[in-house]
Structures are given as structure tokens and as C-alpha cells.
Design a protein around this nucleic acid. Structure first.
Lengths: 197, 197, 197, 197
DNA sequence: AATGAATGAGGATTCATTCAT
DNA sequence: CATGAATGAATCCTCATTCAT
């Protein structure tokens, strides 16, 4: 039972990701998700209270995947290398998950303001970036980085990546992802590093 | 007559901005916009073909306002100062237009993909950033800036600003807007500038 | 003025006939009629109280045309020849006015029941058929026709013509209009005529 | 389940017939039909894709009823008697279904041209009349009827009946239905029969 | 008289959610 | 637990008509 349950839930999340990615939040139909997941509509509601909660869970699942990848990539590295690794990992992740990426861009807006708190997406984002800012803090402590605000540094990086990927997908940037990444490292990392290093 | 028309259209856009900002695209009701604009529902449709087109026009209007401000701020300045001015202006603008800001974040996702092309929001964005990248190009030519890709630099800046403001509004950043701006300048500008300058 | 008025009214009726014929009552737009008639929407309302009244007037105008043709064709003829002439004229008329014909078929149904009385289309129809039944009465009196009810005879003929034309236009009848007419004469006229004649 | 479904569908058709007959297509409201059928509005859409399809189904159902009655009445009879039986049955049917009758008159026009094909009302009509024309054909073969076109004969009859009933209901004919029927038989049947028989 | 901008009532339809089986 | 039929609230947009100019 518990296994069967987990399988169903997984199937639902899988199907939901597919449908939300293809149709966007509003045009995704619950019955279509149920159909693809091979369960009844009612069963979705055993696991998720509402369409919005389902949506939020799809999102969370993806974000946690990114988080895990970034953590692994960063682990044990010196601040500078860690930041490079973060940039590389996040960039690659968005590239790999193009379908998901449009979903991510949409997240901020589709769900009614009130529900967003409930879903704690921004809570997750805060925690995730706090982790990253630790890297910057360490860099400052060890004298490799300038005395910039670590959080600002990290929000800058995160916003830059997001925007660059967005631009790349919209065809506004002709550079390869590799080149974009290198440029970003050049700009932001050397901006953070102490001069003369 | 033409005057009266313009007044109505203006009132509709004003009302729409208010309602869209408060409720988001989906929960904004046309009859509410009409009510606030002091016109009939039918009159909205004399000026805008659909709710989506109205929404898009509200957005465009705002973006053009930002564009105008940035252009003015940047005019006649040396690349470095121009970039600082851009950061300052954009940051202040988003601060002033908090209500609009959430709207801006929503843009990317709410409007159906098909209409987005029609409304050319991303076209506008491209053009706007192309203007900014000119500044970076000039800086590179004059030897003040490093040989980074100008577009990447500008998408980085734009994304950073957007993300920082988002974080600030979400309460993830305790720093004042002034401090955020200064940190951003420190990070990105010194990242772009040639070392040793 | 009076002349100009008449010209406008005529233009409106002309335009209305065109639009109603092409679009049917519901999909015909008043502004389209005004546009084609080269007058303002308001002007239509100087001549016709409502869309329905306009519609009814278009219809009446057509029907009066038919009536005039039939009267002329029938005039001075002996009953049998008169009835033949009626059949011929009505059939030809419907053929000529194919565009109008669909309009005629629609008449009965499109206008709300309540308004139909106001338009007196059926009043007109009654009067028209009463005229035709006079022919049959005369035929009975002169001993050429059997003692059938003249009205029934005439409603039969009228319904038959309408239905045959309908069938012809729907492609349910391959015969030429001429052949259809001859068959109808054979069937109904010999059915009315006294045997042995 | 299937039973309950059939009951609901039946109730909807019943309610729709009532409302359409009373109000006409346009003034019939879906919520009213749902209310009378004791189902939710949404349930109507489980069975019928649109208001127009519902309308068309009401119509079809009625026409099939007529067809069945006529077939039964005609079965095994000699051509002349069969035609009499047809006239009698159709006339009686329209009398009985006065409420439906106005609906039938409306059919031709209310439904959008495009949908009509989909609903095959005219296809049905063609098939129905083809069946009747078989009777005439048999009569011709057996030498009882004149060599008239069977289809023309049948369209004549059908149109005559429809028009006579229409006239009767509009109060244009004072004769009883029985008398009308007898007159029609006299006119059309003797028009079809070989003289001297 | 003519205009045509403004009005605003009105209803089909969708689909997330529920709950009887 | 699972099902999926039934629910019904909720809203954009149209266009005949009006009336100030």
C-alpha cells in the first residue's frame, strides 16, 4: 500500500510536471494530469489539496534537485572555485531543464499572491541562497573576496543567471552557454575578488 | 472629442494598472476596471481588443517610462558613470513603483505565449538592453572596461537589479536600497572595469 | 430633403437585404448595414424602430414584389391558366431570388413570436393567398374545378412550391426547375380540375 | 449507472423540448433547461457539446418519432391507401405536437448553417422522403398512379401538409383538421392517380 | 437631421472540486 | 481507498440602442 501510494504520487507529480510545462498553470487540466498519471481525478486530491498545491510541489521537487546538484558541486571547494562551480551547475541545470525552466519563470506570477506564502517557495529560495552566501562569507573571511554584502552578491549572481538563461532562450543572446558562463564569471567573480589577486 | 477619448483611454489604463497590480491578471475583473475608470465595460473594448491586450498596454506604458528615465539619466555620461546612473535609476524606479513591480515580475508568464509576440514585450526588452549595451561597448572601446560581452554584462545587471529588488520586497534583504545599490555597483562595475583602474 | 430621405431609406433597405441574406438575422450587424448604406447607425433608427422592424421591412418589400409579379401574371387569365401562371411566376421568382429565398425560409423562425404579430407578415400572407384563392373560387363557379376548399388548394400549392424550391436548393432534387414546375402542375392542377375535362 | 445516465439525458431532452418550444432557440436559457431537468448546467454539457447540439437532438428525436409513426401506418398498404395513411398520420402528428410544430418550423433557420450539416437534419429529411417516394414509385409501376416524378409528388405533399398546418395554427383556415386532410387527399391524390380510375 | 461614442444587460461555458458508491 | 459523475460559481465580451453634440 505505502509503496503503491508512493508510486501513484510520483506518477502524479511526473504527469503534472509534464502538463504544467506544456500548458502552463492555467491551461493545465486536472483530468489530463490524472489521465496521464493513470489515476482518477479524485486520487490527486488524496495527495494534494488543490491544483495550486500540486503545482507548488512540482516546483519544489525541481528546485530541490537543483539545490542538491549545487551542494554537491560546491562541496569542499575554495570560495572562488565554489562560486564558479555554482555558476556552472546552475547554468547547466537550466539548460538541461528547458521545459522546467519556463515553468520556473512562471512560478512567481501564476499563483495567487495569497497562496504563495503557503507554498513557501520564497522560503526555500531564501534558504538556498543563504547556503550560497556562506561561500561568499568564507571568501571574505579568508581575504579572497572584497567586503561586499554576501547576500547581495548571491542575489546578483542568481538574478544574472536567470536573466541570461531567459535571454538565451528568447534568442536575445547568440553566445554559447559556455561563453555566457565565462563572461558571467569574468564580470561577477572578478567584481567580488579583491583587486590585485 | 479626441481629447475626451484620450482622457478615457488614460483613465482606463490608470484603472487597469491599479486593478492588475492589486489583483493580478486573473483576478482583475473588467467591470471593476470600468467602474474605477468611470466608463462602461463596452468602452474599454473600444480601445483594447481584450483583457490581455489591455494588460499588455499597461505594461508597455510602464516600461516606456523606465526607458525614458534611464535614457535621461545616462545621457552625456562617461561609461562608468552612465552604468552607475543606470543602476541608480532602475533601482529607484522599481522602488517607486512597487505596485507596478509585482506586475513586471508577472509579465513573463501571465500572457498567453501567442499574444506575447503580438505585444512585443520581449522585443521592447531587447531594444532597451541593446541601448544599455552601447554604454558598455563605448567603455570597452575607450579602454575603461574589460573585453566582456556587452550584452552579457547588461543582462547580468538587469537580472541582478530585478532579483535584488524582488529579494528586498520579499524581506530577504535587510540592507537599505542605497546600500544594495552600492554593493551592486561595487560587484558588477568593478567586475567590468579594467583592473588597476 | 424628402428625396434625400427616400434615397437613404432605400439604401438602408438595400444594404439590410444584402447583409441579412448573407449573415442571417442574428449575425447581421446594424453598424455593417449602416456602413454599406453609407449612413450612420443613428440614421437607421430614424426610419426603423429596431433591427427586427428593419428585418421585417426587408421581407415585406420582397414579398410585395412577388405579389405584384403574381398579380400581373394572373390578370385576365382563366382559372386554370391563372394557376399555371402563378406556379410559374412563384417558382421563377424564388429561383431568381435565391439569396432572398434563404431569408424567406428564415422569416418564420428568427423573429421572436411576440414581434411577429407586429410585423404582420402572416397578415400579408393571408391576404396574398386570399387573392389566389379567388382564382380557385372562380374556377369552381365556372365548373372547371372540383368543389375543393379554395384556401386549402392554395395553401397546398404555396407549401408545395416552397418545399420544392427548398429541396432543389438543398440538392435533394435533380430535376430542372422547369420539370419540377411541370410535375407540380400535373399533380396539383389535375387534382383540382374536374375529372373528364 | 448507465441507467441513471439515460434518465438524466432523457430528462434534459424533455426539458429542452419544453423550453425550446416555449421560448425558441435564442430565448431558451441553458440554466432553465438544467433547472427543469433537475440536473446541473454542467451535466448538460456531459451529454451535449453545445446549446445548438442539444437543440438539434431534440429535433432529431421528434422527427424520428414521426418517421416511426408514418412507417407503421404505411406498412402493407396499397399505394393509394398508403399515401392517405401518410397524410393522415403526419397531419395528426403535427396536430398532437403543436408545441413541437413551431419548433419544427424553426429548424431550418435557427441553427448555424455549418452545424446543420453536422446534425444531418436535411439528410434525415431526404431519407425520410425517399422512403415515401417508394410508395409513389410502386403506385406508378402497378399502373395506379400517373407517371409523375415520385420525389416531386412527395415534396409536394410534405410541403402542403406543413403549410396547411401552419395556416391552421395561425388561424388562417377555419376548416377542421379532418376537412383539411380530406381536401388535401382530394387534391393531391386525385392529381396523382391515373384518370378514369 | 445626422452622427457615432458610449452604454450595460445578458448567458453560454468551463473545470476545479466534491462525495456517493 | 479509488472512482469519476455531478456540481455550479463565475466572467468576458457583444452589439442593439440611445442621445449629446
Amino acid at each position: 500500500m505505502a509503496l503503491k501510494e508512493r508510486i501513484s504520487k510520483e506518477a502524479i507529480l511526473e504527469a503534472a510536471e509534464k502538463v504544467f510545462s506544456e500548458k502552463g498553470f492555467h491551461d493545465a487540466k486536472m483530468y489530463k494530469i490524472a489521465e496521464i498519471a493513470n489515476v482518477s481525478v479524485g486520487s490527486i486530491y488524496r495527495f494534494f489539496d488543490s491544483k495550486e498545491e500540486l503545482y507548488s510541489n512540482v516546483l519544489k521537487r525541481k528546485l530541490e534537485k537543483l539545490e542538491k546538484k549545487v551542494k554537491r558541486a560546491v562541496k569542499g571547494k575554495e570560495p572562488e572555485e565554489a562560486l564558479k562551480a555554482y555558476i556552472e551547475t546552475a547554468t547547466k541545470f537550466f539548460k538541461e531543464e528547458e521545459r522546467f525552466f519556463s515553468l520556473f519563470l512562471k512560478e512567481v506570477s501564476t499563483i495567487a499572491e495569497a497562496d504563495k506564502e503557503r507554498f513557501n517557495i520564497s522560503k526555500w529560495y531564501e534558504k538556498y541562497l543563504k547556503g550560497l552566501s556562506k561561500i561568499v562569507e568564507r571568501g571574505i573571511e579568508s581575504g579572497v573576496f572584497k567586503e561586499v554584502d554576501p547576500k547581495v552578491a548571491v542575489f546578483t549572481l542568481s538574478g544574472a543567471i536567470r536573466n541570461l538563461i531567459y535571454a538565451k532562450f528568447r534568442g536575445m543572446l547568440k553566445l554559447s552557454l559556455e561563453e555566457i558562463k565565462d563572461n558571467l564569471v569574468e564580470i561577477v567573480l572578478s567584481g567580488i575578488k579583491k583587486e590585485g589577486d
